[in-house]
Amino acid sequence: MKIGVVTFPGSLDDRDARRAIRVAGGEPVALWHGDATLRGVDAVVLPGGFSYGDYLRCGAIARFAPVMQTVIDRAGRGLPVLGICNGFQILCESHLLPGALTRNAHLHFRNRDQRLRVENTATSWTSGYRQGEEIVVPVKNGEGCFVAAPDVLDRLEGEGRVVVRYADGNPNGSVRDIAGICNDRGNVVGLMPHPEHAVEKLTGPSIDGLGFFTSVLTAAVS
């Protein structure tokens, strides 16, 4: 099972994402932003970082990278795609996910271990969790404040598309404590916190993040 991780100019967490995939039992494949091919992968991770220096808006330039045209097309046909932090911003800019990520309400970069509640376990990336399970993974962002129009929020809530919610304090002012959402099919998931930094005891606050990467292995096989 091959999972691609895209490297954009300014990506930071592409190596950690590839490592998390390996720890989970998958085969990580490095993908390059300027290359439209997905090299036969079964799923794609858009990692954290500051693609294109966050110029204009976070993810606004990355969205038009050659690789994203293929990702957008394949995501529409069911390819599992996980966007973490900057990757979530790119998914919103690409309109694969609704809403947008804006400057943290308190204007500070927030970096801490964060408790989350998993509220949707029917996605390609969260099927390994229990409904309502609480996990702790790092969060680190300056522009992680999720916003969307009230009717969009109501639809997300009504359709159970809030995948993870901040459980122990909201680090950035995200509306309704939303930390991550999915598309209507559940194959595209975006979240601000970093599950790839919580896959090994030595370096993470927990190994709670591993479930995202083990879930997709099951999803791709089934």
Binding site: T102, R103, N104, A105, H106, L107, C145, V147, G173
Partner: peptide, 13 residues
């Protein structure tokens, strides 16, 4: 410009 209903923390600061 941000839409009027979107919080502008930089403007507030």
């Amino acid at each position: 410009m941000l839409k009027p209903e979107i919080l502008d923390p930089q403007g507030s600061a």
